[in-house]
Amino acid sequence: MLKLVVCIKQVPMVSELPWDPKTGNLQRDLAEGMMNPACRSALDAALRIKEAVGGEITAITMGPPMAEEVLREAIALGADRGVLLTDRKMAGADTSVTSHVLARAIEKNCPGFDLVLCGLATSDSETAQVGPQLAEELDIPGVTYVDELEIRDRTVRMQRIADYFLETLEMDLPGLVTVMAGRHAPRYVPLGGLQAAFAEADIVSLDAAAIGIDPERIGAKGSATKILNVFSPTEGKENIVLTGAPKRIVEQLFERFDDRIGSALGRDLKTDKRSS
């Protein structure tokens, strides 16, 4: 039976989040969370492997305590257990630190894992860096941008489109894939799933000490980059503002800019006007 690990991040439902002007950090507590769309595709891929050849799925997330919601959702959809990595010290992690924490937790909680599935990227910061860096941390082969995958014996065969090449790739297990968002139809939570997710969910919660990682290496402290400054780039250019009823604005627009618009369109709008 294959041991599958799916990494899931909870992301804010809205992309325009309020932020704390002092620290520059997102005020995540003000947003409702959801499972990152590409992580959902990764989970779906894992569920299909489980259905096809059998397997045990561990869903793992690093985040604030409320991130447990995505683990319950994963269990409701068919994952077998969840691991929540939560610790104030982990806040502000860059992708290198995130992958370090995930790797140590996977080694500790899923020894002998066969395949790690990540989303290609998240909708809130979209670096797409965690998957490749996690493969480095675990010292296993990894493939990004995966559309389709199939496991035969201990070999994964994958298809992807990368840089306008359609590629077929292979690697031996253990390995890691990152899965494109939106490739698979949505799944609906089966009734039994809901019960599993709430009555008897197998979820463990671990902090940095429990995973056994050096607190100096995690969170904002362990990150190599620093945010110096945050600014609003609306430098504002000299422009014309038109207001009023739409018909009236259209008239003004053509009065002032028929040349500009006409030359962009490659048509003479003026002559048209004279004859009308």
Partner: peptide, 15 residues
């Protein structure tokens, strides 16, 4: 950053 209305200036001071 932060929803797209702001730009963050990031540096790598030591590494």
């Amino acid at each position: 950053s932060f929803g797209g209305n702001l730009v963050a200036e990031i540096v790598t001071p030591e590494r």
